[in-house]
Design a protein around this nucleic acid. Structure first.
Lengths: 123, 123
DNA sequence: CCATGTGTATTAATACAACAATACACTTGG
DNA sequence: CCAAGTGTATTGTTGTATTAATACACATGG
């Protein structure tokens, strides 16, 4: 049902869109899968339905979702289902670069950063 | 002279404040160091001087900088100059957690992520 | 058929970020 | 002393982003 933090600085609709991008690229959401309705998501997180709709709409424009009139939104049927690892890696690239830059500004040793991230990835 | 991207979604004044936090914690900016004037920074990046002033002002409120009347802003003289590695690491924690979550949503193998980050950290 | 479920167009409220143009208080250095 | 350099307070404007409230069009399924 999406991991949403309404308090975050990142806009809710963008949290949803980006999460959709990753879940679809990673295969956890497969072609044809039906998404929870805007009202369900909105009710669950106590946010406005239009905010969810906006996210769904942008994902549709992007080709991630398709609208099944009367039924809801479903993951679009793309040519290849799951993106290659390189393609998925590319979605993380900007974040990785920012992290590296910040670590350098903090003068942190690379190993320490890698160790910590390794631990977080294992959980 | 700060790494600023006026096009970024992140507000300019916050880019500056956060960069100051890291550069000071890491010791690249030491107690007493004089910062470039608001007019210089603004001129260089073609942004409004008041935007820089706002960032400096927030950094002062935070205790990072102190105002030397007539001279400019300088890195505040704190008890201990450079933060411990654990303290600096804490400034990266949230970003690391977000990265780990995204990697999991992308179903990316941990080693691949760690390898790529390692390479970026070496440059 | 029609109640119930979809998504969404429209409008509005609110907040925020950045810019612009001044004017001011202060210190330094010739 | 005073020109030139600091940062800043103030006021106003502009553009944009985000969320909300409401009403609507449409398809489904008993």
């Amino acid at each position: 049902m999406f991991a949403i933090q309404p308090s975050s600085a990142e806009p809710i609709y963008r949290q949803i869109v980006e999460q959709l991008r990753r879940l679809i690229a990673g295969g956890q959401l497969a072609s044809g899968d039906l998404l929870p309705s805007v009202r369900d998501v909105a009710g669950f997180h106590a946010i406005n339905p239009m905010t969810v709709s906006r996210a769904y709409g942008m994902a549709e424009t992007e080709g991630l979702l398709e609208r099944l009139r009367g039924k809801g939104m479903a993951v679009a049927v793309t040519t290849r289902s799951t993106a290659t690892q390189a393609q998925r890696m590319a979605l993380l690239e900007a974040q990785l670069q920012a992290l590296a830059r910040h670590a350098r500004e903090l003068e942190l040793p690379g190993d320490a950063v890698l160790r910590r991230l390794g631990k977080l990835l294992d959980e």
